[in-house]
């Protein structure tokens, strides 16, 4: 049963990108839907996730809080092969995993722990990163109830200038497939822009898009109609809730999906934020 809107998009480009089935693409990109597989990394670490495609195992590191894979759901994998780098015991991809919305009970595999995987670095930031390892090696540190959480690195966002001359600012927020949930770090950045906009009496412009993903199989996945609008309206509500006057806000959305190319189609699912002081 197809749980998402699909279509076929046959074209010269497609034939060029995809070689005979069962073989890897030659341009170094992959785009596919599969069950995520969790890999147990021993008693003191988080699990990591891989996905299998055309006989190879791939791993992706999503940006912090973009949304880790979930068993019981398939994932859309859109990435570029990072030659020579492994993560979670698999070929590392640079790109995005998106968790698909409907349940798939077939996605339920956990690879048991057999020994440490040395290629997996700890998560770097985001709330997950703030979960400093509870590995016993840290147990001797600061045995105190005194909260010093604010000495830990916050969600890292670059500081903006605090006074004139005010400069235009831009932010691009990327979304998982069929989702209007932005990541924590992206929202932390947005909060900064709001402060900047209020200080500089700037105008906010947001332009929202939705996308298609061309899979290696030739199949096309199209986001649900109305996603661009849904994202835009959610962001508008957030901006107003954070104190931006509606009259200083322009929102627009592109109802037609950006056509998939099979290369980093995740970039289509975005909102561009533009601040003009």
């Amino acid at each position: 049963m197809k749980r998402y809107r699909t279509g076929f998009w046959a074209s010269g480009l497609l034939l060029f990108l995809v070689t005979a089935s069962g073989e890897e693409r030659e341009d170094g990109y992959v785009s596919f839907v599969a069950c995520p597989v969790a890999r147990h990394q021993g008693p003191w670490r988080d699990v990591c996730f891989i996905a299998r495609h055309e006989g190879r195992e791939y791993a992706l590191r999503n940006p912090p809080d973009y949304g880790e894979p979930q068993l019981k759901h398939r994932i859309l994998v859109e990435g570029r092969i990072v030659e020579g780098e492994e993560y979670c015991g698999a070929q590392l991809l640079d790109g995005r995993f998106s968790v698909l919305r409907e349940i798939d009970q077939n996605c339920n595999e956990i690879i048991p722990y057999t020994g440490p995987i040395t290629d997996t670095p700890p998560p770097s930031s985001g709330r997950q990163g703030a979960y400093v390892s509870d590995d016993p090696q840290w147990a001797h540190l600061h045995p105190s109830v005194r909260p010093v959480m604010n000495q830990l690195p916050d969600l890292a966002v670059l500081p903006l200038p605090e006074g004139p001359p005010w400069q235009p600012q831009r932010q691009t927020i990327y979304y998982p497939f069929d989702s209007d949930r932005a990541s924590g770090p992206d929202m932390a950045r947005l909060v900064q822009l709001v402060e900047y906009a209020i200080a500089s009496n700037a105008r906010f412009e947001i332009r929202s898009y939705q996308g298609q993903s061309l899979l290696d199989s030739g199949e096309v996945m199209t986001e649900r109609p109305g996603m661009a609008r849904q994202r835009a309206e959610k962001l508008r509500d957030i901006l107003i809730g954070l104190g931006i006057d509606e009259s200083r806000l322009t929102i627009a959305w592109e109802p037609e999906p950006i056509v998939g190319t099979g290369r980093e189609d995740w970039r289509s699912r975005r909102i561009e934020v533009h601040l003009e002081p």
Partner: peptide
């Protein structure tokens, strides 16, 4: 605080970006 287990299929937690399963302790 320390004893981790596989926190699985908890809507509102493992689906909010953390991953399913989420291998953590009661506290973390």
């Amino acid at each position: 605080f320390e004893r981790r287990f596989l926190i699985q299929d908890v809507a509102g937690l493992t689906d909010k970006g953390l991953g399913n399963p989420f291998h953590r302790s009661c506290a973390s």
